[in-house]
């Protein structure tokens, strides 16, 4: 878990994704190859603005480890303003979430490996 998390710290903390200059598509998490353009693709790293809108969501009532303190919690499909889609926790009252709701990225704790373990941080979303 530790090396897997460490390798992705940059993109998880900062919403760093990819942009294909050939077809204009944006991706998150970052990709090395554009799935549309393949060899013709020209992929470069991009920092997303952190703003977007809710496309869809689920309210989770049976929280998995590290999320049980926040249940019920929302996992949302969010379309970033640049066009990339991301699945991420949305810190919001389940009664308030709606399709098209404007959201922004925030830096939050995701969990920890027990009291002695490492703390995992990353990007969640909140209503604007």
């Amino acid at each position: 878990m530790l090396p897997k998390f460490w390798r992705k710290i940059r993109s998880r903390y900062n919403l760093i994704g990819s942009h294909c200059e050939n077809c204009g598509s944006y991706f998150y998490p970052p990709r090395n190859i554009c799935p549309k353009c393949r060899r013709k693709g020209k992929v470069r790293e991009v920092q997303f603005s952190g703003y977007g809108k809710v496309l869809s969501w689920s309210v989770v009532h049976d929280g998995v480890e590290n999320f049980w303190l926040s249940k019920p919690y929302i996992v949302a499909l969010i379309e970033l303003d640049e066009g990339a889609k991301i699945v991420a926790p949305l810190d919001c009252n389940p009664d308030e979430v709606r399709e098209g709701m404007r959201v922004k990225a925030v830096f939050r704790k995701f969990g920890e490996d027990g009291e002695d373990g490492i703390i995992y941080y990353g990007t969640k979303f909140v209503p604007v």
Partner: peptide
């Protein structure tokens, strides 16, 4: 603070 906020998350948010 919320359950997922600590000194590091607060520090990052104000610094951003």
């Amino acid at each position: 603070p919320s359950w997922d906020e600590d000194t590091a998350t607060i520090a990052v948010e104000c610094a951003r």
